[in-house]
Design a protein around this nucleic acid. Structure first.
Length: 278
DNA sequence: CAGGTC
DNA sequence: ACTGG
């Protein structure tokens, strides 16, 4: 199947910027298990080629229905974001499956991106279902029930370390409240964040990632070590470390209602920014 | 020493 | 405090 893009989109950047953890580039195609099938996607200019997904699946997952130009125009409020927008235009936030996103970011604390990918892959291998595509083996992300019935000791065999009990707790929550994702979708950002942070192992940063990457809450501005550094040195010129509220609050005030999108563009450019010095 | 949390 | 790049 193929789709002619009439809107800006950069597949490579979108799947490799660190928002999702299961995409792999093999022989020019990006592969990932999404839901119950393996998706195979390639972009050539303004054409997307894909297998394993419907047009509607692709549009929804990659957020091709979101008015990116309007958002980028709205957040383009200073020189730094202007250059990030210029060099990363086409980067789109995905609509990730909520449960997978939640567990993935619980796995993301105190770990680098390769480490997160490894843990998520281990969980899928152990508790997901096997899928074949082009002779390769992939694993679906487990359902809440698949993890909820496991002991932390077993889950720990996936090399998740101290996060074992957080994963089991979050799985039990999702399994016992099948409507949890629908509820969070319908909540305001503040209520949704309160709900997610009530889970053990889910603090402000993890909650904001899940709200931004799975629930379309663009007010969510995840503040990791990189974002704290950027807001401290580039925006606020502060000597000491910024509190989470101060950094995120400043971002929302400065960038407006799509501050989460601005965060992702700045994050995508973090390596360039890091090279310019502290 | 790494996309934090309890 | 787990774990590994």
């Amino acid at each position: 199947m193929q789709l002619k893009l009439t809107v800006p989109f950069n597949l490579d950047l979108s799947v490799s910027c660190g928002q999702s953890f299961r995409w792999r580039k093999i022989n020019g195609f990006w592969y990932a298990p999404v839901g119950d099938s393996v998706w195979k996607v390639k972009q050539e200019g303004d054409t997307l080629f894909y297998e394993g997904a419907s047009d509607a699946d692709i549009i929804r997952y990659f957020g091709l229905d979101i008015p990116l130009d309007d958002i980028l125009q709205d957040i383009d409020r200073d020189e730094l974001i202007h250059s990030a927008v210029a060099s990363c235009r086409g980067l789109r936030l995905h609509r990730q499956p909520p449960f997978e996103c939640l567990i993935s970011y619980i796995c993301a604390t105190c770990a680098n991106i390769p480490g997160i990918q490894l843990r998520v892959e281990n969980l899928a291998k152990m508790y997901g279902r096997e899928l074949k595509s082009d002779g390769m083996t992939f694993y679906t992300f487990p359902n809440p029930e698949d993890l909820a019935c496991e002991s932390p000791e077993n889950v720990r065999l996936c090399k998740v370390g101290y996060r074992d009990k957080y994963i089991c707790g979050a799985a039990a929550y999702a399994a016992e409240n099948p409507q949890w994702a629908a509820d969070i979708f319908s909540m305001s950002y503040a209520d949704a964040k309160r709900e997610l942070t009530s889970l053990s192992g889910v603090g402000q940063k993890v909650a904001d990632c899940v709200l931004l990457f799975a629930f379309e809450k663009y007010e969510a501005v995840p503040i990791d070590v990189w974002m704290e550094r950027i807001f401290r040195t580039r925006y606020l010129g502060s000597e000491k470390k910024l509190s989470y509220e101060k950094a995120a609050g400043y971002a929302r005030e400065h960038f407006g209602r799509y501050a989460g999108y601005a965060q992702e563009y700045l994050f995508a450019e973090r390596e360039i920014l890091a090279k310019k010095g502290e």
